[in-house]
Structure formats: structure tokens, C-alpha cells
Design a protein around this nucleic acid. Structure first.
Lengths: 202, 202
DNA sequence: AAATGGTTTAACCAAATAGTTAAAATAAAT
DNA sequence: ATTTATTTTAACTATTTGGTTAAACCATTT
């Protein structure tokens, strides 16, 4: 008895921490055990193999992202609302967890087959998003851009700076982390203004 | 005698192939040797360790990107020219080497210290870019956006779809690679139109 | 043809690492 | 108190993998 549920959570959290920063190949079971404050044997007692543990972690991270995306759609009736809440949500998330997108993208790249099942089991109703985007793209006051292109643009503008933080800090901000943080603070507002300037007529 | 120069090129090419797809941790010296059509001993004979080989490969990939970026700046006198040639250049590059950005970003993330030296030795004169961007941001016909934000936006819009191709194919294009390819074909034009719509007054 | 120096091979070594086992310890439930 | 499930310890195995060694090979030079 003693713990069990608590321990499982502790392990998942520790595994998330290590996998997210080091990736599947770079992560060590010993380091996960140390981070969780337990030993390796117990780690294998709970999750039989590294792969199984990784799958749990990746699924939880991914499901989390999708759940939040879904929440965003639910409350949006216009394209402005959608963009505003999407960008706000992701900035809030990524400021405290900036390593998540790089992790997800790298692991999907490593084994693209996992994503198929993940999307199936994600329960995300894409139709709702498509319907909203399509409806809004018909508006008189909005330029006739391809809605998919615009959607990818909003996602790119939001997520890329986090994925590329290393290169941006080194290349553009001369290694000055504070300048980069300041850039990120202003980024959200910039995205909203920039996208509005692009898609609205007049 | 015999070969040597040819063999070295063969190894670098093979190493690039494997490192780019698997990352440093995921790459295996044996696989690099196999890909190069030689054996592991010869691999170590040419490049003493995995790290040394990786450094060579990474440096060459990175230097290549920087060189092309530099070329872009050289021929640009206006912001329109800069954006046009930047986007064109990267689309041309990335269509045949779509894995490069994910690779670079992942490795910089894994060991951010490498980028400092790389940038030093890259010979990129950032001042030229800054001068151009700053000069152009003063133009009467252009909205007063923060030029750094705009620059990051152009980079994000261009590169992110390649970094996130796996998730975009799975999530947005339902696993249909052809739809994604089509999306990429239209992406360049979209970026140019979208950015122009955003930054020009009236 | 003999010497030279780069090239190739196969067998090998050492370290790291995922995973196992079995026994002891601990704490809660009965 | 006994049982039961969880946790710890520590030693161990098997495999992978980066790296080494030494001998053989081959092309060119002398």
C-alpha cells in the first residue's frame, strides 16, 4: 500500500521532465528514477519498459495540447475570437513549458506513425474548426485568403519562436536572454495586430 | 593514396543523411558506415569520434544555411526584395531538404552552447541586415511594426511548416501527403501576399 | 620488385544502459 | 500477529554501441 497512485504520478511527472528535455533517445531510465526520487527497479515495476513509459508520457502531453485546442474552438464564434483565444492559450501554456513543442515535433519526426493513433484517440472534432474557418472566410470585411494557409500562419507565428528559441537568442538577440523574454512578452500582441492588418479589408 | 578525398566526402554525406534524420543521440556509427558503404573502423580512421564527425556535419549544414542567408541580404535593397528572396531561397532549399530545420533546432536545443561558436565563425555580418530592416521600417508607406517581430514572423511562416510537417500532415491533411505538398507549393505565394497585406498602409 | 602509405577487414574491448531477479524492508489492512 | 501490497536494495544479465587493434590489402612511387 503506502503510496502507489502518488508514485505513479511522481513517475509520470519525472518522465515527462526528462523525456521533454532529452528526447526518447537521450533520456536515461536512471535519470527518470532519480528525478522521481525512486530506484530503477520500481520504475520497471510500474512501467515495464522505456517505450511503454514514453508512450504514456507522450500521449498525456499530446492529449493535453489537443484538449486545450478544443477548448479554444468551443468558445469561438468569429475568426477574431478564435485567433485571440488560440494565441492567448498557447502563450500562457508555452511560457511555462517552452520545451513542449520542440519535444512533440521531434518525436513525431522520429516516428511519424504514432500520430495517426493519437489523433484518432484525441477526440478532436475537426469539423467544428473547419466549419468556423470556412464560415468566417466568407465574410465581406475579410480578404479572400486560403483559410488553411491563414491557420497555419497563426500557428507558425505563435509556436515557432518557442521551438527556435535557441537560435533566436543566439542569432538575433546575441545571447541576451532578457531581450528574448521581452520579445516574447510583446509577441502575442504583435501577432494579433499583424494578422488583423493582413486579413481585414481597408 | 587510392581514394581519401572521395571517401571523406562519402562519409560526410552519409553522416549528414543519418544525423539529420535520427539526431545525434539516435544516430549509430554503424549505420553511418553502412550508408557510406564502408566499415566502422574506417569511419573512426577518418573522424576519430562520433562527436567530431557530428561537429563537422553540423557545422557544414549550418554554414550552408548562413551562407545562403547572407547571399540573400547582399542582393536586397528594399524590404520587399529581402522578404521575396529570403522566402524564395528557403523554399527552394527546404523542398529538397525538409529535415534540415528540425535537425538544426533539435541539436541547438540539445546543446545551446554550440551556437555561440558557430555564429562567431559564420562570418555573418548582422549589421547589414539590421541596417536594411531599420532603414526600411522608416518608410512612409509601411506600417510601424517592430522590425524584429516582422522578421521573426517571416522566418516562422517559412520554416515552421517544414518543421511541423508530420503534425500538419496528420492533423490538418488527414495523412494525405499530396494535399500537404500542394499546400507547400502554394505557401510561398501566400506568405508574400499575406506579409504585404499586413505591412503596407492603405 | 620493394618500399611506402593510405585503405579495408574482422575480431575485439570497455562502457553504458535497459531490463531482471530475489531477497529484505516497510507499512497498512485484516 | 499475520497477511498483503508496495518499496528498496543490490547484484546481475544481455545487448548495444563507441571505439581500438593488428594484420592484410592495394595502389603508387622509387
Amino acid at each position: 500500500m503506502v503510496n502507489n497512485e502518488n508514485t505513479e504520478i511522481k513517475i509520470i511527472e519525472a518522465a515527462k521532465e526528462v523525456f521533454v528535455h532529452k528526447g526518447f533517445e537521450g533520456a536515461r531510465m536512471q535519470e527518470i528514477a532519480d528525478t522521481a526520487g525512486i530506484n530503477k527497479a520500481l520504475l520497471h515495476y510500474y512501467f515495464r519498459s522505456k517505450s511503454k513509459l514514453f508512450d504514456k508520457v507522450f500521449h498525456s502531453v499530446f492529449a493535453d495540447l489537443v484538449a486545450k485546442l478544443y477548448k479554444t474552438v468551443g468558445i469561438s464564434n468569429t475568426i477574431e475570437e478564435f485567433i485571440e483565444s488560440f494565441v492567448s492559450l498557447y502563450f500562457e501554456e508555452l511560457k511555462s513549458k517552452p520545451y513542449i513543442p520542440q519535444f512533440v515535433l521531434h518525436e513525431i519526426n522520429r516516428d511519424p506513425s504514432v500520430i495517426v493513433n493519437l489523433i484518432k484517440s484525441s477526440g478532436l472534432d475537426k469539423q467544428k474548426i473547419i466549419a468556423l474557418i470556412h464560415k468566417e472566410s466568407q465574410r465581406e470585411d475579410i480578404k479572400q485568403f486560403d483559410p488553411v494557409q491563414v491557420m497555419v500562419t497563426v500557428i507558425s507565428m505563435t509556436i515557432f519562436p518557442f521551438v527556435a528559441s535557441g537560435i533566436l537568442v543566439g542569432f538575433i538577440f546575441d545571447g541576451d536572454q532578457a531581450s528574448f523574454d521581452n520579445f516574447i512578452d510583446e509577441r502575442k500582441q504583435h501577432i494579433l495586430e499583424f494578422v488583423n492588418a493582413a486579413i481585414f479589408k481597408k
